[in-house]
Simulated scan of single mutants.
Amino acid sequence: MPTPDRTSLAEIVATAQDIAEEEGLANLTMQAVAVRVGVRAPSLYKRVRNRDDLVRLVAEATVRELGEQLDAVAVGGDARTDLAGLCRAFRAFAHRRPAGYHLVFAGPAASRPAVTSLATAATAVLRVAGALAGPDDALEAARTITAWAHGFVGMELAGAFNLGGDVERAFEYGVARLADALARA
């Protein structure tokens, strides 16, 4: 009779996400995951090819989670309100999952999420961008939104705002100016 499964792929990936956030990506190993889920490391290879595959699965799960959070705040109301909600959710996500955020936006090419996963996660951003800038400019506007938010959040996570002032105020100012810039004349 086969041995019953003592873990699942979902549990393995969630545990790997936790390790990456708590201990850093460098400490995300098959052994560390195995210890936390209560199996021997060789058992993980039934579900995950190797560490690189595990890191890719973490990136996929992270971008899926980000997309779900963006979808939850961009409900199709006023485009400016939705843009502010998207930017705030993006920022909050990066603060809550900085290792995963880094993996999705700046991780090794082999570990980055599939283009289809990124496209799914970008659905709300594309929708809001199209509402602001018009359907013909939706992709360019979505890229502008993402680039601004990523730049701001990246500097914030790196502690690079060194000139004083209120970073919250600066963020809200940027969101408002971004909406102004993208809005159709």
Rank of each mutant, 00 (worst) to 15 (best):
A74E: 10
F105C: 01
A99Q: 15
H102S: 14
A41Y: 05
M155F: 07
A141D: 03
R64I: 15
A14Q: 15
A94M: 09
G100T: 08
Q69M: 10
A72M: 01
D166Y: 00
G24D: 06
A129M: 04
T123E: 06
G165A: 02
T62I: 09
R91Q: 07
D52F: 00
P98C: 08
A110K: 10
V13P: 02
M30P: 05
T62C: 11
R80K: 03
G165I: 14
L182M: 06
G77Q: 12
A170E: 12
V104N: 13
L132V: 08
L157I: 10
P98H: 09
A183G: 03
P2A: 14
A34Y: 13
D180M: 07
H95W: 12
L157E: 09
D53F: 00
D166S: 08
T144I: 14
L83K: 03
E156W: 11
A141R: 08
A110Q: 10
A94W: 06
R184C: 04
R36M: 02
L86Q: 09
A114F: 09
D53A: 15
A133R: 06
Y173R: 11
K46M: 10
P113M: 03
A160R: 15
V63K: 07
A185F: 04
A133G: 03
E21S: 08
H150G: 03
P135T: 12
E22M: 05
G100Y: 01
V104S: 11
V37E: 04
R40N: 13
L44M: 05
L83H: 03
R6K: 15
A10W: 06
V58K: 04
A72H: 10
R143E: 12
V75C: 05
V48C: 09
A41P: 11
F105R: 13
T123V: 02
N50H: 13
A89G: 08
R91L: 14
E168C: 02
G100M: 08
A185W: 07
A20K: 08
E156H: 03
E168I: 04
A133W: 12
A114P: 13
E68M: 02
A183H: 08
R6Y: 11
R88C: 06
E156N: 01
A61D: 14
A109T: 14
Q17F: 05
G134H: 09
E11D: 13
P108N: 10
T29Y: 09
A121F: 12
E168M: 00
A59S: 15
D136N: 00
W148M: 12
F93D: 01
A176W: 06
Y173L: 11
E140H: 11
R91M: 00
R177E: 15
G151K: 01
L57T: 01
A34N: 13
L178C: 01
A20T: 00
R36H: 10
S8F: 08
E21N: 08
A74C: 13
V175Q: 01
A158W: 01
E21W: 05
L28Y: 04
T81S: 10
L118E: 04
M1H: 05
A72P: 13
H102G: 14
L44S: 05
A94G: 05
D53G: 08
A10T: 15
